[in-house]
Computed example of a mutant assay.
Amino acid sequence: MPKYLWQVSYSPEGARGLLEQGGTARRAAITEMVESVGGHVDACYFAFGVDDLFVIGDTPDEVAAAALAVRTAASGAAVSHTVALLTPEQFDEAAARNVTYRPPGAGR
């Protein structure tokens, strides 16, 4: 299954809900959401800085990941950025693929 990193920033409304319910309740809700599309949560960490939460997990496909993103956005409680992750083996496969590329400004 494709693996993702979700970087989440809470709106003031979302932060108030987080303060009321707590971190473990939020982790349970996130796990339930990801599992509802057939995925799995590997890790869930709160942070401070630009992003408030980092989640690593997988979904069966990109459509499932998009469903999670649109539901999160529609709530207004958080903004989530989805980053597709590759294993080192997947990166090796990508690096070995033949690609035709011409840098900008290079001759034709």
Rank of each mutant, 00 (worst) to 15 (best):
A66G: 13
G76V: 00
V63M: 08
T59P: 01
A67W: 00
L53W: 05
P60G: 01
T72L: 08
A66T: 14
V55R: 08
A69Q: 01
V50L: 05
F54M: 02
G57A: 14
D92T: 09
V55H: 02
T87E: 07
T82Y: 04
A77H: 08
V55A: 03
H81T: 06
D92K: 06
A96F: 07
E89G: 13
A77M: 11
A67S: 14
R71Y: 00
I56T: 09
H81I: 02
F54G: 01
A69S: 03
A65S: 11
G76C: 03
A95F: 07
D51E: 12
Y101E: 15
R71T: 05
V99F: 08
A84L: 15
H81M: 01
D58H: 08
V99E: 12
N98P: 07
P88H: 08
T59K: 01
A94W: 07
T72S: 13
A65E: 00
A96S: 12
G76A: 12
L86P: 00
L53A: 09
S80V: 10
P60Y: 01
T72K: 10
V55D: 09
V50K: 07
T87G: 14
V79D: 09
A94G: 12
Y101S: 10
Y101F: 11
L86M: 15
E89I: 12
A65C: 03
N98S: 12
E93Y: 13
F54V: 07
Y101W: 15
A78C: 11
L85N: 08
V79I: 05
E93F: 15
S80I: 10
D61G: 05
A66H: 06
V50H: 14
T87D: 07
G57V: 03
R71P: 00
A74Q: 08
L53D: 04
A78W: 13
F54H: 03
V83I: 13
V79W: 15
A77C: 11
V63Y: 09
Y101V: 07
I56N: 05
F54L: 02
F54T: 11
D92Q: 10
L86H: 08
